[in-house]
Design a protein around this nucleic acid. Structure first.
Ligand SMILES: [Mn+2]
Ligand SMILES: [Mn+2]
Ligand SMILES: [Zn+2]
Ligand SMILES: [Zn+2]
Lengths: 148, 148
DNA sequence: ATATAAATGCAACAATATTTCATTTAGAAT
DNA sequence: ATTCTAAATGAAATATTGTTGCATTTATAT
């Protein structure tokens, strides 16, 4: 589903966005591409002890600006970031898919396959984008749950 | 649309939920019922200087627990609170309506009239609740915008 | 009027995010 | 290869946001 990427491809990505190929950026990229769930700033901080917190914030911000990753808030309101698969451009995201937040493992899944049902808003509202959040049990946690 | 309420009704509400009728609580209630948009903690803090920050947090928390208000995160991830109109009970909310976040005035509107379209998730996911967020121009900001 | 549990206010603390600036480094120019 | 420079990082300071503990006040039941 998510196409795996190697380090050369990550370097290309940074090149393409006129970002310098630095070690912290490559590590963040490879971490985010290796998972099928979104990553929070605390997640990164816990794994990459040697990289400064501020650097992580800045990497997340610039990646979001460039359209490499997009931000999703989970049930607690903490920001999670996931790689974009919708040919997003700088300052112009198109990540209008469903997000699933597991109530047990707290992971956030991007359900890129699902497009949103169209919906009509009350008169006067001019919507520009939609996001649908679903929460409940993810496949893993549901399996564990029904096993016992 | 939103039924206006007077102070006696606010007192009744607190009574019904076994909460003491205190001045801070009544003021928060009346502020939230007087608007048709959600209220953030900073909003409250800016208006009610004389009430302690911590008290406001506690009021919001207990109101949410009791099913009087529900929490909505806006585009920046800040928590906003809006009155419930879905006969919510303590620890059991049913606020599955559409939320609209205006990109200009930043206001969050509960579109209680709109129910959510049903949606089928990929195999394995066991959803328990849904929220649909829309963002764009609210009626007011759209009108101002097209005027000039 | 009194008693008591609940609620508030204040101070301290913790967690999270941003700003500033000195130092380092990637990539371009020579 | 060496030098140069803008970009990126790291570290400290500051700001913002949310929580905890405790003394004081207050709503309400008796
Ligand atoms: Mn996504
Ligand atoms: Mn709502
Ligand atoms: Zn899960
Ligand atoms: Zn607006």
């Amino acid at each position: 589903m998510i196409p795996a990427k190697n380090n050369y491809q990550f370097e290309d990505m940074l090149d393409k966005h006129q970002l310098k190929k630095t070690a912290p950026r490559l590590r963040v990229l490879s971490m985010m591409y290796s998972k099928n769930t979104a990553t929070s700033q605390p997640d990164l901080e816990n794994v990459m002890h040697d990289i400064d917190r501020v650097t992580l914030y800045r990497i997340l911000n610039v990646f979001e600006e460039k359209g490499i990753i997009h931000k999703v808030f989970d049930l607690d309101g903490t920001a999670n970031y996931a790689v974009c698969h919708s040919d997003c451009e700088a300052h112009h995201h198109h990540d209008e898919h469903v997000h699933f937040n597991c109530t047990v493992c707290k992971n956030v899944y991007c359900l890129n396959e699902l497009s949103l049902p169209s919906i009509t808003l009350p008169a006067g509202f001019r919507p520009e984008s939609f996001t649908l959040y679903a929460s409940g049990l993810c496949p893993k946690c549901d399996k564990k749950n029904s096993a016992k």
